[in-house]
Every structure is written in structure tokens, then in C-alpha cells.
Write a protein that binds this DNA or RNA. Structure first.
Length: 944
RNA sequence: GCCCAGAUGGUGGAAUUGGUAGACACGAGGGACUUAAAAUCCCUUGGCCAGUGAUGGCCGUACGGGUUCGAUUCCCGUUCCGGGCACCA
């Protein structure tokens, strides 16, 4: 029988559905394994061959683990909220839900053709109320919690209130937006609204007035990871800094735990490093500087406490509150002018030109170590959002301070022995400290750093600062709180209404608060988010239900929050929901969570390193604190699949003509390269007839050929419609079958690596499957016999078992496929048609090519599916060689020598080697100096 | 600037702990079968040199050193490519 992949694949895909082959349930008697893919956003363009790469890799792993006897959870769902569906809705008026669901159907259709072992009964869609119920619920829990630094955990806000009632802010060690100070009596005297405002300072989900990334074109704020080089990640629109009242998540409270957790998980070093950079821990000191001739003082943050004696000026961020306080009347005009200039500059301006700008405030600060009065400047190179928004400038040892000092002609005092600061600053943290204090200068305090290394000097200074109450040791993080509001329609609504301008949570029993219908998806004319268009979007506290906006009376009916949650909200805990997707009482039951624990293997792109992968770790840690998630880290092992790039083809049109010249001849003409659809090019040879038919303007095209062919140029680019290099998996499945596609995608190269797609090589994978098939079928007869296998056949099989098992464990599929090809060739050559060999082979290939495996498994007489088979055990004895080789080294070269029996022990071999007459010509007369037994039991002899 | 990960034929990529570099596949060239095409099968394929030939020699894993009997692998330095962070004090 021919290998008819079309019938086989259709047949088994239908059977798997009918038999619920991949449905899993919690089973205490079996060990669990949780495999997860980053769920896709269902875009209108459908899947291209790059998308399934990670799914195939994880599916192989899931199937392998299942064959090893694990109870494998391998779910799939959709990240269904998002901008493209909303943009499309704005343009066409179509409800985003409609387009999203249509896209989901299309994705499902494409995914089903590839033969994944997903348990679709656990599918989740983030836009469905049954799902976002728990997104809203988690938000309310965050609103109702604060972060205790002492116990390093989220706690109910009621605990904080108790603390305030007892001792105000005394002995408080919690995460907060700003440091407040009040007594228990003052707290008790506060009105309810003021109390609510105070609590906002501590909640994990809080309403904060912060500088946000505002994108006017998108009409929404964006999180830091959604802004790249001053423009929006989606669309590339300019982003400006704007102060707005927004929901925020206190991710910063978890910074240290997010950092520490990285050491406990099995992720790639580069991804961990990316997260470490993003969290940006820096250890330093906060030091207080008094303002000269004033009772004011301010605090700066530095990691280089050792440079206190080299401070020659101070700098404030233009947005700092201190600017107003410290500007003297004489400098007011100059400062105002400067502030106006800074305000005009966008984030992008600042990044693109690093001009040295600044203005003197008129005030001076007293250095607590030297007593010197240093001028206080204002400059945009100091950021308001980091540290205290004020720095001490040490131009000798900081390149930014150095540039500033040179520009404004400020003094530069070197503090490291032998360093030269005439051309540039000396930023390195190495060397011996000098000039601290300077020779001949009367010491202001009894403290010297001279002679210490920089490391020692930093420690000594911190100690001095702490002991003399000049400031404190402080750890700063770059990681900011996440801005959690979006001025959009297609997202989770907040379960929040407003009473007296203060947010109130709707009762837990009333969730989910469903997204209302609107007639327009654009912002309202007054600039409110799209939910402002909803007619029915007010909360009645009497009936606890959503009512018409017209009925707002400020006694029982209140306006609901108009913002929606950002994209990362729905994707932050979906892995927990898969454990128990139909539970309407809880996000996940304790039983399900205890069984599935956490994701054992997570596969997805590294582009989520500073977005989803930070947020969901934060979210999970919060749920861990609440006792909902039993594991602190949600993703034990993470593999980043590399992006599949497109391989574009070009044709070369001679300028101002309709004549196209082949690649090798194009340099003789003045040509314009044009993208050509890769689907009408094969092996870089253009199908000229298809090209003429491709577009009307090419119907009359003429060609200058080489060797009768038109050769196209090529380049590796992103796979996208506009480059005409999109390859659709459906097309591959149609022509070669899903098993071939799966094999080929894995064969392309290491899963983690980015690589261009090139359909040309796919024949090789397809040919292999045909050969594999022909091991079992001889023309129309199923030819498997019950003969006993030979040693050579067993060796082939066990070599394969060993290789494939090891490869799957380390995700090295691109090397196990050649192992299959070699084994198949060997066995074909041996004319092996023996069940004892061929039956295990079917199981081995099942993770990679499940359809052909099922078909052969059935032909072998099995009534259950191959998914329920047992992974074959590897036995070393079949691989043992009957001889071992001896290596002979002389004159610095290694050569192979003589075979020895494999069962000889090392001493015997060594003795034999010493007495052995070296036969090769080039070794005659050489004397053996030493014998080294090396791995593989090869013998290494040093001869002279 | 700081940090991380890389560099192997015409191409994608193999090579276990330091042990015959280039597996496997694509592409290319040659051949068989065939009226022809498709399909299938076989041979050659890192470079240079010697030999009618079997074969032999030299060079070769970005570059320069080092350790070692032996280095794609380990160490030091350089160059180049990719990724992250970046007026973060």
C-alpha cells in the first residue's frame, strides 16, 4: 500500500476527537507533567509556518512524556483581547467579539490539521466572562492587599488598618508609593474619603497619579514594555509622558522576589539576564544634603558612596518637586525658560540627541563630608522617576557628570590614584582611593578613605553614613509599577464603580462584571474611553446590578469605571485556569492546583521576556501569597523557540521597462529589485508563467534569462504579507502531510534558534516517511514477520532508542530525526521486517509523526492507540562493541592502531599495548612511553 | 557604554565528558530505469597537492596565542554578527 498521508491523517484526527484520546483528568495514581505553550492571539492573518514551531516541539515532548507513563496536561486557548480586533472594529463597526471568534475558528481549523495532542476540553478564551471573572477577581484581591516588607508577602489591607489604628505609621515596613507619616489619633480623625486616599498609597492594585506613557494616536496609555525607543510597540506611534490618574499594580514590591526567583528556575541564561536587567537592582546609599543658608534639605541616591569627596555640583531632575523650592528669585526666569524647553521635548527627542543642557537653580548644597557648598543645577539628564530625582555629581568618575562639568565649566576632582581625567571620566570601580579628603585641606569630619580600594571605600562610607545619621543604605530597582488601565473597549472591564470620586469594588458575588455593548468603539467626544459610549454602564448598590447611565443619582446608582484592563491581565494566570477551567467557584480548586502544581515545560517566544513573563511571575507570586497557587514560580523550565523568518525572493526589473533580468546578469543593468511571491518560485527559479498571471502589470513582462532560467535573488526577512514570503502550513499539509510538516519544522535546526523557512528541503523529510512506511509494507502486503531479530538489527534499534530518548529530554529534535533516517536506512538494507524491531520503532516515531505511527500501530494488530503504548526501554548490552580501538600518539599526532577484544579489562589492554609491535610504517622502531586509557575504552599510547 | 549568547562546506546544521570534524538533509554534478516526464535507486561532493589506480600527503571549525599525547570542545586576547539594558547616578 502506498503511504497515503491524506487519508491517514484525516482518519486519525477524526478518531482522536471521537475517542477523546487527549482528554486528561487529575489522576492521583499517576505522576503529572504540565506542558504549556504561550497561547496565541488570534490575528486575522491566520497561522504561518512559524507559529506551529513551538507547538510542535512541545507536542513532541508531551507525547513522549505520555508514552513514558506520565499524566500529561497539554492545553491550548486564546489570548483573545487585543488591539487589532478593536482597530478593525473602529474601522468597520464590526463587534470585536465577532472578528475574534471568527479568527479563533480559523486558527482552530489550522491547528487541527497538524495533529496536536491538545486537550481542547480545557480551552480558555480570555474574553469570555467565565474566564475574565477570575481576572477581575484577582484585581479585587490586589486592591484589598498591601505588601509587607517584613514578612515579604501580600497581606489583607485590614491588617494595615489595624496597624494604623494602633500606632499610625510608626514601625511600618511596607511597600508604598510615598512615605507618609501620621499617628494613630490622626488616622482615627481622618474622614472616610481621606482614609481611602491614604490606603491607596499601600494597595497592591492602586489608583495612582503617575507619569504615564501616553500614545495619542492609539488614544491609550502603555506599559513600559509596550514602548520601544520612544514609540509604541504596536504601530510605532510617538509616545509622550503625561501625568494621569491610572490603575497601577505594585509590581515593584515584588522586585527582590522576582529577582531571587530567577535562581530557582530552569530558563536560559540570556532570558534570566534580560529579566535581571529589567528589574535593575542597584545597591547604594541615600545621603541627605542640607541647602546652604536655609533649613531645607534633600536626599540623593548614589551607588558610589566612595566618591563623596569628589562632588563638585548637584543636579535635580526638571520634574522634581525640589526645583520649585530651591530656585532663587534671581534664577527664576532662567529656570522657567529651561523648564519650558524640557517640556517641549518628547521621550524620543531625549533619546535621539544627547545634548548637554541645564540651568543653575541659584541654591547651594552643603556636602556633609567636606562642608563645601556645591551649586545645585537642574538638568534633563537626571530622571525624576529613579532614585530621589536628585543626584550628587562626581564628574571625575561618572561620564554623564563629566560631560556636564566640561560643558558648564565646573571643577573635576579625581579620587583614584593614577587616573587621568583630562579627556574622559574614570568610571571603573577599581583602584586605590586618594584625595578623600584632599591633602592640605583641613578635614571637615574625622573620616578618610585614602588608601582603600573602591570596594572598601564604598562599604566604609555606607557604614559612616548609617552611624552618623547622614542617610541610609538603600536598594533601588529600575522595575516600575505596571500601569493597569487602558482607554480601550476590547479588554476586561474593571469591577469598580466610583462613589465620591473614590473607587469601590463591586461585590464578589456579582462578578463577572460583563463588558457592556457600545454603538461606537471610538473614544467619546469628550475624550473619555469607549466605555463612555455605553448606555448601560452604572452600578446600582441597591440591586447590585448594572443599570442605565441616565439613572445616576449619587445615592444608590454610581458610574462604573470606563477604562479596561491591559493585554497582560488575561494572560497572567491562564496556566492556573487550565488546571480547572470550568470551575465557577474559584480560579482553580485547591485539589487541581495541588495535583498540577506548576508548568513543567513552557514554550514560547523570548519577546515576552519583559512583559508577560514578568507580569505572570508577579501575578503568581501574589496568588501564592494568598495561598491560591501552591508554587511560587509558575514556569519551572522555559524554552524559547526561535522565530522562523521568511525567505524572500526578488526579481530585478530594468528601470523604466517591463523587462526582468535574471540574478546573475543584473549587474549589467540599472535594476530595481522587487519582492516576488515565494509561492511561484521553486529553488530560486521563477515560474515565469505563474509570474505573468500573478499581477496584470506583469502579463506582458519580458525576461532576460540565464541558461534558459530566471534565477531570483533572495534575502532573509521577517515573514509578512508585504514581503510576499508567507508560507501557509495548510499548503504544506495539503502537499506533504502534517507528519512531514512536523518532522521538517523540527529538522530545520535547533528549536531555540531563529532560522529562515525554506520549503525546498521538505522533500527529504517526506521521502524519509515513505521509506519508513515501506519498512512495514511491501507493495500491497503488510510485511511484518515474527522472526527473531539479529544482533545488528537490535543494535540499530537500541542506538535509536538511546539517541531519541536523550534528544527529547534536551529538546534536540533536529538531531533525533537524522537518527531515525539512519536507522531506517540500516534496517532497510538489512531487509528487516521483524515485529520485534519495527513495533518499538512505531512508538519511537509517534511523538514526531503521530498519524503514520497510529496507522502502522493499527496495522500491527493493536486495538488501542499508540498514545497508550509504553516507550521502549534502552538496553546497553545491544550496543557493546566486540572490539575496542587503541590510539597511538607520537610526535604530537594521534593515529589509530589496533583492535582489542571488548571484554578485555584495562590492565590487560595496557599490558598488551606496551608489548604490541607497532605495525604501521610511520611507527616502526618507535618506543612506547606511556599508555593512557581514555573514554570509550580507547587506549592512548605515547610513543617516541 | 554595561551584560548575555553566538561564529563549523554552496545551504540548514551534526560531532557524548577533550578522542577519526563535516552526521543527516537540501542544493549541485554524474549515472541507472523510462518513449518521455514524474517517482525511485546508485555514485561523487571542505580546499589544495601527488599518483593510471588502490591510495597517500598538506591545510582546514572567525582570527592570534596557551594548556594537552590529542582542542570545534577548556583558558587568555582580538574581530564580526545577534539579543537585552541604557543619561538608572
Amino acid at each position: 500500500m502506498e503511504y497515503n498521508f491524506r487519508d491517514i491523517e484525516k482518519k486519525w484526527q477524526q478518531r482522536w476527537v471521537a475517542m477523546q484520546t487527549y482528554k486528561v483528568t487529575e489522576d492521583e495514581t499517576r505522576k503529572k507533567f504540565y506542558v504549556l505553550n504561550m497561547f496565541p492571539y488570534p490575528s486575522g492573518a491566520g497561522l504561518h509556518v512559524g507559529h506551529p514551531l513551538g507547538y510542535i516541539a512541545s507536542d513532541i515532548y508531551a507525547r513522549y512524556k505520555r508514552l513514558q507513563g506520565f499524566n500529561v496536561l497539554n492545553p491550548m486557548g486564546y489570548d483573545a483581547y487585543g488591539l487589532p480586533a478593536e482597530q478593525y472594529a473602529i474601522q468597520t463597526g464590526q463587534h470585536p467579539e465577532k472578528t475574534t471568534f471568527a479568527n479563533i475558528d480559523r486558527y482552530r481549523e489550522q491547528l487541527d490539521k497538524i495533529g496536536f495532542s491538545f486537550d481542547w476540553s480545557r480551552e480558555v478564551r480570555t474574553c469570555e466572562p467565565g474566564y475574565y471573572h477570575w481576572t477581575q477577581w484577582a484585581f479585587q484581591k490586589m486592591f484589598g492587599s498591601f505588601y509587607c516588607n517584613k514578612c515579604q508577602s501580600a497581606q489583607p489591607i485590614e491588617e494595615l488598618i489595624k496597624h494604623f489604628e494602633k500606632e499610625g505609621t510608626a514601625n511600618l515596613n511596607v511597600a508604598q508609593s510615598e512615605e507618609l507619616s501620621f499617628t494613630a489619633d490622626e488616622w482615627k480623625a481622618m474622614s472616610d474619603v481621606v482614609k481611602q486616599q491614604v490606603l491607596m498609597n499601600y494597595r497592591i492594585a492602586y489608583l495612582g497619579e503617575t507619569m504615564v506613557n501616553w500614545c495619542p494616536q492609539l488614544g491609550t496609555v502603555l506599559a513600559n514594555d509596550e514602548v520601544v525607543d520612544g514609540v509604541s510597540e504596536r504601530g510605532g506611534f510617538p509616545v509622550v509622558q503625561k501625568k494621569m490618574k491610572q490603575w497601577c499594580l505594585r509590581v515593584s514590591a515584588y522586585a527582590q522576589r522576582l529577582l531571587d526567583g530567577l535562581d530557582t528556575i530552569d530558563w536560559t541564561e540570556s532570558l534570566k539576564e534580560t529579566q535581571r536587567n529589567w528589574i535593575g537592582r542597584s545597591e547604594g546609599a541615600e545621603i541627605v544634603f542640607k541647602v546652604k543658608d536655609s533649613d531645607k534639605s534633600f536626599t540623593i541616591f548614589t551607588t558610589r558612596a566612595d566618591t563623596m569627596f569628589g562632588v563638585t555640583f548637584m543636579v535635580l531632575a526638571p520634574e522634581s518637586e525640589l526645583v520649585k523650592e530651591l530656585t532663587t528669585p534671581e534664577q527664576q526666569a532662567a529656570v522657567d525658560e529651561y523648564l519650558a524647553y524640557v517640556k517641549k521635548r518628547t521621550e524620543r527627542d531625549r533619546i535621539s540627541d544627547r545634548k548637554v543642557t541645564g540651568v543653575f537653580s541659584g541654591s547651594y548644597a552643603i556636602n556633609p563630608f567636606t562642608g563645601e557648598a556645591n551649586p545645585i543645577w537642574i538638568s534633563e539628564y537626571v530622571l525624576a522617576g529613579y532614585g530621589t530625582g536628585a543626584i550628587m555629581a562626581v564628574p571625575a568618575h561618572d561620564s554623564r557628570d563629566y560631560a556636564f562639568a566640561k560643558h558648564f565649566n565646573l571643577p573635576i576632582v579625581p579620587l583614584v590614584e593614577g587616573c587621568d581625567v583630562s579627556e574622559e571620566s574614570f568610571d571603573a570601580k577599581e583602584g586605590i582611593v586618594c584625595n578623600s579628603p584632599r591633602e592640605g585641606v583641613k578635614p571637615y569630619i574625622d573620616f578618610s578613605l585614602n588608601g582603600l580600594t573602591i570596594k572598601e571605600a564604598i562599604a566604609a562610607t555606607k557604614k559612616y553614613v548609617r552611624e552618623n545619621n547622614l542617610g541610609r543604605v538603600k536598594v533601588n530597582f529600575r522595575l516600575r509599577d505596571a500601569i493597569f488601565s487602558r482607554q480601550r473597549y476590547w479588554g476586561e472591564p474593571f469591577p469598580v464603580y466610583y462613589k465620591d470620586g473614590m473607587p469601590q469594588m463591586i461585590p464578589e458575588a456579582c462578578m463577572p462584571l460583563e463588558l457592556p455593548e457600545v454603538d461606537k468603539f471610538l473614544p467619546t467626544e469628550t475624550g473619555e474611553p469607549p466605555l463612555g459610549n455605553a448606555k448601560k454602564w452604572a452600578w446600582d448598590t441597591k440591586t447590585n446590578s448594572v443599570v442605565d447611565c441616565g439613572t445616576i443619582d449619587h445615592k444608590t446608582v454610581f458610574p462604573l469605571e470606563l477604562n479596561t484592563m491591559p493585554g497582560f491581565a488575561g494572560s497572567s494566570a491562564y496556566y492556573l485556569r487550565y488546571m480547572d477551567p470550568h470551575n465557577d467557584k474559584a480560579l482553580v480548586s485547591e485539589k487541581a492546583d495541588q495535583y498540577w502544581q506548576a508548568v513543567d515545560l513552557y514554550v514560547g517566544g523570548s519577546e515576552h521576556a519583559t512583559g508577560h513573563l514578568i507580569y505572570s511571575r508577579f501575578w503568581n507570586k501574589f496568588l501564592f501569597d494568598l495561598g491560591i497557587s501552591c508554587k511560587e514560580e509558575p514556569f519551572q523550565k522555559l524554552v524559547n523557540q526561535g522565530m522562523i523568518q521568511g525567505r524572500s525572493n526578488f526579481v530585478y526589473r530594468i528601470k523604466d521597462t517591463n523587462t526582468f533580468v535574471s540574478l546573475g546578469l543584473k549587474d549589467q543593468y540599472d535594476v530595481t529589485p522587487l519582492h516576488v511571491d515565494v509561492n511561484i518560485v521553486s529553488g530560486d527559479i521563477l515560474d515565469i508563467e505563474a509570474f505573468k498571471a500573478w499581477r496584470p502589470e506583469y502579463a506582458t513582462a519580458e525576461f532576460i534569462l540565464e541558461d534558459g532560467k530566471y534565477v531570483c535573488g533572495w534575502a532573509v526577512e521577517k515573514m509578512s504579507k508585504s514581503m510576499f514570503n508567507v508560507v501557509n502550513p495548510d499548503m504544506i499539509v495539503e502537499r506533504f502531510g502534517a507528519d512531514t510538516l512536523r518532522l521538517y519544522e523540527m529538522f530545520l535546526g535547533p528549536v531555540e534558534q531563529a532560522k529562515p523557512w525554506d520549503t525546498n528541503g521538505i522533500d527529504g523529510s517526506h521521502r524519509f516517511l515513505k521509506k519508513f512506511w515501506n519498512m512495514y509494507w511491501d507493495k500491497d502486503a503488510f510485511a511484518v514477520t515474527d522472526e527473531a531479530p539479529t544482533a545488528a538489527e537490535l543494535k540499530s534499534l537500541h542506538k535509536l532508542i538511546k539517541k531519541v530518548s536523550e534528544d527529547i529530554e534536551v529538546f534536540s529534535y533536529n538531531t533525533s530525526i537524522p537518527a531515525f533516517m539512519i536507522a531506517t536506512n540500516e534496517l532497510t538494507q538489512l531487509k528487516c521486517r521483524k515485529r520485534a524491531i519495527l513495533e518499538p520503532m512505531v512508538i519511537l516515531i509517534a511523538p514526531f509523526a503521530p498519524h503514520i505511527a497510529e496507522e502502522l500501530w493499527e496495522a500491527l494488530g493493536h486495538t488501542t492507540t499508540v498514545c497508550d503504548a509504553q516507550w521502549p526501554a534502552f538496553e546497553e548490552k545491544y550496543l557493546v562493541e566486540d572490539t575496542v580501538k587503541m590510539m597511538v600518539a607520537f610526535n604530537g599526532k594521534t593515529r589509530f592502531g589496533i583492535d582489542f577484544p571488548a571484554d578485555a579489562d584495562n590492565a590487560t589492554i595496557e599490558a598488551a599495548a606496551r608489548g604490541h609491535e607497532l605495525t604501521p610504517k610511520y611507527l616502526e622502531g618507535k618506543q612506547i612511553l606511556k599508555v593512557i586509557i581514555v573514554p570509550k575504552r580507547m587506549i592512548n599510547i605515547v610513543a617516541k
